[in-house]
């Protein structure tokens, strides 16, 4: 308890100077690379993630995996060995990466209109360049942008956000690495913010069940905020691509 109190100061500021319900700065870019069908880069505070999407294409490798009524989504999460403070030994294949891949797959399946592409496969690869808390949300958001860049139909934006509880009663969102290691529970939510549906919910450590609705509510609010930022970025990107093809001059 005594450690938890320091997460937020008396005047309501967090360690990095944010308010409890403030997101870190999000900057993103679509279409960085020419090789993949869709690519995106996102920065949430210091957390930096690259995502690439290949497909939809014919099922690679084991053909028997192909589904007659929907596309299969293949996700791989990997972290650059220099992404963390202490150098990592392996970029992928450890337990945490496998778990991340599974969670990412679960969230993306819910958002992609897989039924439109029978017998095909969509590959989503994410690469963490700098890990500073909230890796999973950054990966989900980057993957969403890359899927949009690849032109794959989504039901709606898929956004994720973390939330925590400070001083046992103040919910706060978008937890940084420093706040993660100081302790306190972390709730990770991936949601379809326009319809308000939750597609993935994960919690570590504990807090009282009475607090859950409150924290969940704030996390969903964070997802909506992120969605607005991503939406803005997508519109800007379309405007940029469109104007370079000269659509503005034709009207």
């Amino acid at each position: 308890m005594s450690r938890n109190r320091e997460l937020i100061s008396n005047i309501g500021l967090r360690l990095d100077g944010r308010r409890a319900l403030e997101l870190r700065r999000i900057r993103c870019k679509l279409g960085l690379f020419s090789e993949p069908d869709g690519s995106a880069y996102i920065e949430q505070g210091l957390t930096k993630v690259l995502a690439a999407v290949y497909g939809p294409h014919q099922v690679r490798g084991n053909r028997s995996k192909a589904q007659h009524d929907c596309a299969i989504v293949n996700c791989q999460f990997s972290m650059a060995v220099f992404s963390t403070g202490e150098r990592k030994r392996r970029p992928r294949g450890d337990r945490k990466s496998t778990e991340m891949s599974i969670h990412l797959h679960q969230a993306l399946i819910a958002a992609i209109k897989v039924e439109l592409y029978p017998w095909s496969q969509i590959d989503v690869y994410v690469e963490v360049l700098h890990a500073d808390g909230g890796i999973y949300p950054a990966c989900v958001n980057a993957a969403t942008l890359a899927l949009i860049d690849a032109g794959i139909p989504l039901k709606e934006y898929l956004c994720a956000c973390t939330a925590s509880l400070a001083s046992n009663d103040i919910p706060m969102i978008d937890i940084s690495h420093q706040e993660e290691i100081m302790g306190g529970p972390t709730l990770t939510v991936a949601a379809l913010p326009m319809s308000g549906k939750v597609v993935l919910l994960e919690m570590s450590q504990r807090f009282h069940v009475d607090h859950l609705p409150k924290v969940l509510d704030k996390a969903l609010k964070g997802c909506i905020d992120i969605k607005n930022i991503l939406d803005e970025a997508v519109k800007n990107n379309v405007r940029e691509i469109g104007s370079s093809t000269g659509w503005a001059s034709s009207t």
């Binding site: 690519s39 990997s78 060995v81 590959d123 690869y125």
Partner: peptide, 15 residues
């Protein structure tokens, strides 16, 4: 030296 072939580069690098 450590080289990491990210799957972002090409799907052949997966796994």
């Amino acid at each position: 030296f450590f080289v990491d072939c990210s799957a972002n580069a090409t799907p052949d690098f997966e796994g």
